[in-house]
Every structure is written in structure tokens, then in C-alpha cells.
Amino acid sequence: MKLLPTVAALSLLAATGAAHAADPNLARNLAATCANCHGTNGNAVKGGGIDALAGVPKDKILQKLADFKSGDKPASIMHQISKGYTDEQLDLIAGYFAAQK
């Protein structure tokens, strides 16, 4: 019976988390919105002239996105697209691509 409070507390956390919740595949789903141009899982078509993102370090992707958002990095389109995502979403996206091969 001593275990019960711990189990209950953990269960409560899990239940609360599930109610509001972020989908466990949120990073994957968000990154997929980039794949039309940057390739499935960030593997852009070679010679297509668009950056591949698979395996690029997370910090590097985040810095680029921050520079697009702020206007520090000139862009034809990414300054407009990056502003459509929250910083939390961009963090998930960058983390997902960094982990791809």
C-alpha cells in the first residue's frame, strides 16, 4: 500500500498530460510540413537547389530560422514561412531534422 500514493501521483500526471496534450508525434508532424520543399525527413532532392535539413545540428537550424524571422538573413520565402510557426514549434522541427539521417 505504500506504493499507492506514488502510483496515484504518476497516474495523475499522466492523465493531466494526456488531456491537454501534445501529440507524441508532434515534432514529426510539424517537420513533415517542411518536407514538400526540403524533402521527406529533410532529405532534399540533390540538385534541386533547396537545402537538405536531415542531420543538420539543431542549433544551426534554429539559428537560421531565428535569422529568417528577424530578417537578419535575407531570404526569398523563408522569412515569410518561419513567422508562421511558434518558437516552440521551430524547436521541435529543428530537433526532429537534426536526428534524421
Binding site: C37, G39, A44, V45, G47, G48, G49, I50, I77
Partner: peptide, 18 residues
């Protein structure tokens, strides 16, 4: 711009693959 013309063709290659 011609640059966007090139990107447009790159977009096509990528979305077809995706």
C-alpha cells in the same frame, strides 16, 4: 526573378519526391 524560377523547379522536384 529568375532565381525564383529556379526555386520553383526545385520545389517541383522535391514535392514530387515527397
Amino acid at each position: 526573378s529568375e532565381l525564383e524560377g529556379k526555386v520553383a523547379l526545385g520545389w517541383a522536384k522535391n514535392i514530387w519526391a515527397d
